[in-house]
């Protein structure tokens, strides 16, 4: 994931979203962070991806989508978005992506919303 300009600063705000096992493999769950809605997915290989939770098409709940290793498909009209970049493969607008990690205590850590994410065009 590309780091935005702010993440090079010494104090990136990070948010602990709690234990990773709130998210079943292959599914997503939504979190409210700093007034934004973030969909966090846990791939079948265990890695995490985070994107904005509201579909740019008609506001569909992205966290309820179906995923594989590359994309998430919105449940309402099946627009697909790359999990890594947020770019739509079906011609919709992009979703924002966020930096996300699992810490040694198996908690989900979302990096500072201001700056660390990228808007992919």
């Amino acid at each position: 994931m590309s780091a935005g300009p702010m993440s090079t600063r010494p104090m990136p705000a990070s948010h602990n979203l709690g234990p990773v096992d709130q998210i079943p493999f292959g599914e997503g769950r939504a979190f409210g962070v700093d007034g934004e809605q973030v969909a966090v997915f846990r791939l079948r290989d265990g890695s995490l991806r985070a994107l904005s939770a509201v579909c740019p098409h008609k506001g569909g709940p992205i966290a309820d989508g179906t995923i594989d290793r590359q994309v998430v498909m919105c449940p309402l009209h099946q627009h697909a978005f790359e999990l890594d970049t947020g770019c739509s493969t079906t011609g919709a607008e992009s979703l924002r992506t966020y930096d996300i990690q699992i810490d040694p205590a198996q908690n989900i850590i979302l990096q500072s919303i201001q700056g660390a994410g990228n808007y992919s065009a």
Binding site: A30, Q37, A53
Partner: peptide, 16 residues
């Protein structure tokens, strides 16, 4: 069956 099976996917529900 799964953790959070019935958890909302729209924490701040702003949709129509």
């Amino acid at each position: 069956l799964t953790p959070g099976q019935f958890r909302t996917s729209l924490p701040l529900t702003v949709l129509p």
